[in-house]
Design a protein around this nucleic acid. Structure first.
Lengths: 356, 356
DNA sequence: CCATGGCATGGTAGCGCTGTCAATAGTTCT
DNA sequence: AGAACTATTGACAGCGCTACCATGCCATGG
């Protein structure tokens, strides 16, 4: 007894093939390797598909072909605007291609990341984009065992699992501190929130720069595991001033903190930059329009996301990029908050630091 | 001649069933309707699955069952932090459930939305979350024809396609304007960017409040189709002052603009709130820590996302919520930027406006 | 003229799972 | 005790597509 599970109105590949007067397998080829068909059939299948409004069944395709057209993306946070820029780049790059994005949030936990990685890999993704270079050993071996292209995002470092795109957080921070030192600052504080691996590397850059200048002082460092916020910037800055009242500049590991510091300075009648210089990190949009405008380190977040997705797609399609590690660099954008008023001509100048 | 496409090491449901000593279909039921199994088999299948590290093949499941466990989400922007809060809520609600999210970006285009809707519906999602109530007629009929649960997000209005969660943007804005009127403002400007449907409804709330007070003046309105930014806030405010130099308060359709206005006031030595009162919209985190602190209208974005996803899941599983339209309300959070210094006691007070 | 090889096309047999129905075992009721 | 159920389990046949192999066709060359 034949069951009738197929709804009559449903458009399958078979229907397209019938209308086009070809076999189903030929119609199937039209969607996978159109160049293998004769022009004649190609046109016929195409118009038949269009006429019927055919939409392929991705589940059937995935089951039969043993692979999907899904790129898995693992990011640590949905709140942090840094990642919304990256995501926008990823989605833009994938838009119009045959691939789709499967997004998951690790919440800054590498164990959670490992768990999600297992889930993703079980579904045989076409490619994978992960954040950072600090995975658990298990995650690493999972990634090394799989054969799908993988991009590690946001940072560069030794031993890429496969491909890598990002920049050196330590160098970027080092450059910002060097700029503050150039401006004559000697008591430069470091404010950091969340302290994820990337923030920690920025801290290393700070430490190195201060050590090179012989200005290290643990009282100048205030960090917290709490997630970043503008309010927190003010709080950390207050802590810093309590520990080191002679602070003459603050490097904030991200821009939210820097804005909070700016407001706290205003609250305490500390003039910026005369009494206190400020630098943020990431160069979010508002840094350019605050009063005074705020120095920051521009990172190419959108481009990172966009290129990461593009690299994965290239690799999926067999055109592995020759450069497996891409350094997108950074730019110290000097603004009013870190320039002596006399030297105002320098404010607004971008001091480019080349990639590698 | 039997082809060997199955890799030997692969763990399928059959392998689990064999180890558990049951038929494959019984093992299958363990994952769908465990309560239909005897305790004995349930335990055996469970331990067998665990021992083998079985992970179900979602493509096969989707193909056989003719449905997926994917909830499609259509949002207009990945940049706007309003949506990152909503998304966080959605992902949190879905986390730990069997469902996963498929996200797509309409870029504020209802035609793009319609296109994405077709793609989504072709894959038979378990549920759908769409932004707003302004779909094309085609989108609407697509949504009405399908049988999967749908939540319209961010707003409430007449004729829900299915379910709805949000708040009245017009009322929320009206409440903010009423507050400014209470403070004695008479020349209240309106700044709006992007002018998507929700911003337009806020504008209607502004217009109504001004009309009721007999204070309407087209010179007080400055809008642009450009996307919002802090810098743009300053620019629009400059335009406003050029058109209406006697402006005594500004309502900004979102918080970025409000921050830009605050900085522009500082640049022009306009004191806030003495010479100019400011209100934003959305109550992003920084509004509470600027100097002066900025009045805004708090909207429950995270809760909106979280509840939307929860509602969809409930409906998918047959427990349709009795309330199909959920008004999450809003709160006018009065801060220093909109209170006469003498009345400072009121600043920081939340003036709740109940939902419905 | 027929062997050879490359190209376009078709046939067959699944991919791993679940919907439907049937069968069996256990229980309750008259 | 026998009928009528219910709870549990199993058999079978696909879901819509593609991998693999086979076929037919034509051009080429000895």
């Amino acid at each position: 007894m034949a069951r009738k599970r197929t709804k009559p109105g449903k458009i399958r590949l078979t229907e397209v093939a019938k209308l086009a007067g070809v076999s189903p397998i030929t119609a199937s080829r039209f969607f996978r390797t159109p160049e293998a068909l004769s022009i004649n059939k190609r046109v016929r299948v195409e118009s038949a598909a269009k006429e019927l409004g055919y939409v392929p069944n991705l589940a059937a395709r995935a089951l039969a072909s043993q692979r999907t057209e899904v790129i898995g993306v693992l990011i640590p946070s949905l709140t942090n605007n840094v990642f919304s820029d990256v995501l926008r780049g990823i989605y833009d790059a994938v838009d119009g291609s045959r691939y789709s994005i499967q997004l998951a949030n690790t919440r800054y936990s590498i164990l959670q990341e490992e768990k999600l990685l297992r889930v993703f890999l079980a579904q045989k993704p076409a490619g994978l984009i992960v954040t950072g270079i600090d995975q658990t050993p298990e995650s690493r071996s999972l990634m090394e065992t799989t054969d799908c292209p993988i991009v590690q995002l946001m940072e560069i470092g030794e031993n890429p699992v496969d491909m890598m795109i990002g920049f050196s957080h330590a160098e970027a921070c080092h450059a910002a501190i060097s700029h503050l030192l150039d401006q004559g600052c000697r008591r430069i504080g470091f404010l950091g929130a969340r302290m994820d691996p990337r923030v920690q590397r920025r801290f290393l850059g700070y430490q190195q720069a201060m050590k090179d200048a012989g200005l290290t002082d643990p009282r100048l460092v205030v960090t917290t595991p709490l997630p970043t916020s503008v309010t927190l910037g003010g709080t950390l800055f207050a802590d810093l001033l309590a520990k080191a009242p002679d602070t003459d500049a603050v490097f904030c590991a991200n821009d939210d903190l820097a804005l909070g510091v700016l407001f706290e300075c205003r609250r305490r009648q500390i003039s910026v930059p005369e009494q206190m210089m400020i630098s943020g990190f990431n160069d979010l949009e508002f840094m350019a329009s605050s009063v005074p405008t705020l120095t920051s380190v521009r990172t190419n977040r959108y481009e990172m996301g966009r290129n990461a997705a593009a690299m994965v797609i290239e690799a999926i399609e067999g055109r592995r990029p020759e450069k497996r590690v891409v350094d997108l660099g950074f730019t110290v954008v000097v603004r009013q908050s870190s320039v002596r008023p006399g030297q105002a001509s320098r404010a607004g100048t971008a001091q480019q630091t080349a990639a590698e």
